[in-house]
Amino acid sequence: MSDPVKRRYDTSRRQEQARENRRRILTAASGLFREKGYAGTAMPEVAKVAGVAVQTVYKAFANKATLLKAVFDVTLAGDDEDVPIAGRDFIAAIQAEPDAARKIGMYLEHLAAVAPAVTPVQLLARDAAAADPAAAEVWRQMRRETLTAMTYFAADLLATGQVKPGLAADDVRDVLWTYHGPEQYELLCLERGWPPERYGQFLRDAIVAAVLV
Rank of each mutant, 00 (worst) to 15 (best):
L190D: 08
P120C: 07
A77T: 02
E191C: 12
W194F: 15
A149R: 11
D89C: 03
E191V: 10
T146H: 12
T151A: 02
T75V: 05
V52Y: 00
T146N: 13
V52W: 00
L111K: 09
L167S: 10
I91K: 05
V5I: 14
G193R: 10
P44K: 06
A93Y: 11
A130F: 15
L26F: 07
A60E: 03
S2Q: 15
A135T: 08
E186N: 09
Y58S: 07
A125F: 05
V163N: 06
Q162D: 14
P4Y: 04
A112I: 11
I207C: 04
W139G: 05
Q15R: 00
Q122H: 15
T11M: 03
Q17R: 00
W194L: 13
V46S: 00
A28N: 03
A28R: 06
D171A: 07
L108Q: 15
Y38S: 03
T75F: 08
A77F: 07
A39D: 13
A29Y: 04
N21P: 00
T56R: 00
Y179E: 15
A93W: 15
E81Y: 01
V83F: 06
K164L: 15
G51M: 04
A154N: 01
V54M: 05
E191D: 13
F202L: 07
G181T: 14
A206G: 12
A206N: 08
V213H: 12
L76K: 05
N63M: 11
M106R: 14
K6Y: 11
R19W: 01
H110A: 05
Q162Y: 05
V71Y: 04
V5K: 06
Y38T: 02
A135G: 04
V57I: 02
L190I: 04
A96S: 08
P116T: 07
K36P: 09
A47H: 02
A130D: 09
A29I: 02
G40F: 10
A210P: 09
H110D: 03
V172M: 06
P195W: 08
A101V: 06
A39P: 04
W177G: 02
A206M: 08
F33T: 01
A117G: 12
T119D: 06
A53N: 09
E186H: 11
A159C: 03
E109H: 07
K48L: 13
V49D: 05
A42P: 07
K64C: 09
D127T: 09
A53D: 04
L123M: 15
E81A: 06
V213M: 09
S30D: 15
